[in-house]
């Protein structure tokens, strides 16, 4: 072994493999408590195969009318252990809350009211999603970062006879902003909220068709054959392996550039994630070109 090899080993900043401590074991549990891969992940079964789901859609008017009537157990001191309205019911268990969403299209205030009744101060945004994600609880998002004791997360529970059944856990005394999304059916043509960053390793939106590696012209032709409109995002890879995507108009894209993958944008449009080809120009500053997120605007 040469001197270089010896010296390189000698400056190894972490020469010994760390043991799995309690923090590592907690991380494993926390990760496995996050939602399993969703519909955009073609390598796993569709959500529907985990158990039947029957969305129960009631109108917002109905929800508002019965909300107060079935609110239960709100003692004068401290939060309730159980609360239900026509949109959602929440029940406190030992170290989590059971959440059942019955009306994903209800007013966000119905959801916030229920969370607050059991002592969780959260903001809820009802966001448009694809039909097979209706009722889904998105997040939790902690925009300012989660630095507190305990952990925060959700776990889906199946089988479920409502639009969504799951567990939510978070410390009741967390003072920061916590945002949940509730997926409602998107209107025709309305863009879906994006809850997961695009995965450049391969995401495919068109069943039975692989867009990855094909030219823009070929994938666009396939999309049109299926009656879909096409949107474009440039997928910028930085030299050190990172990536970011940038929504761009069609005239920024050349037919012979390569498609990395595709994702449903709305009921009638598919977004093609395109690798920038010659003449694409310099990559934008990822912070300035940040794609808007569903939780950015929390006003109605």
């Amino acid at each position: 072994m040469s001197d270089i090899d010896h010296l390189m080993r000698a400056i190894d900043p972490t020469p010994h493999a760390p043991e799995q401590g309690p923090g590592a074991r907690e991380l494993r549990a926390a990760i496995m408590a996050t939602p399993a891969p969703g519909r955009r992940r073609s390598w796993l079964p569709q959500r529907g195969t985990f158990g039947p789901r029957w969305p129960v859609l009631a109108s917002a008017v109905t929800a508002a009318a019965v909300a107060v009537a079935i609110g239960v157990g709100l003692p004068a001191s401290g939060p309730a252990t159980e609360y239900a309205n026509a949109a959602v019911s929440i029940k406190k268990a030992e170290d989590y809350f059971s959440v059942t969403i019955t009306d994903p299209a209800a007013d966000r205030r119905r959801f916030e009211e229920a969370f607050r009744a059991v002592g969780l101060n959260v903001t809820v945004k009802v966001v448009p999603v694809a039909p097979d994600e209706v009722g889904e609880l998105l997040g939790p998002v902690v925009p300012e970062g989660f630095k507190w004791h305990g952990s925060i997360g959700t776990q889906r529970v199946t089988p479920c006879a409502s639009a969504f059944c799951g567990k939510v856990w978070m410390p009741s005394d967390f003072p920061g902003r916590v945002v949940f999304g509730v997926g409602r059916p998107a209107k025709p043509g309305e863009p879906y909220a994006e809850d997961v960053a695009f995965d450049p390793e391969g995401e495919e939106a068109m069943a039975g068709y692989t867009a990855h590696g094909k030219t823009v012209a070929a994938v666009r032709a396939e999309a049109r054959r299926r009656g879909l409109k096409v949107g474009y995002r440039l997928l910028w890879n930085s030299p050190d392996g990172g990536f970011s995507d940038q929504p761009v108009p069609a005239d920024r894209i050349k037919d012979d550039w390569t498609v990395s993958g595709s994702r449903d944008h709305s009921s009638d449009t598919v977004d093609l994630y395109v690798l920038p080809g010659p003449g694409a120009g310099p990559a934008p500053d990822p912070l300035k070109a940040r794609t808007p997120q569903w939780y950015d605007d929390l006003t109605d």
């Binding site: 401590g21 590592a24 991380l27 926390a30 925060i152």
Partner: peptide, 9 residues
């Protein structure tokens, strides 16, 4: 990080 998965770690 947003989901606070690794606090103890």
């Amino acid at each position: 990080r947003r989901a606070g998965l690794a606090e103890r770690l």
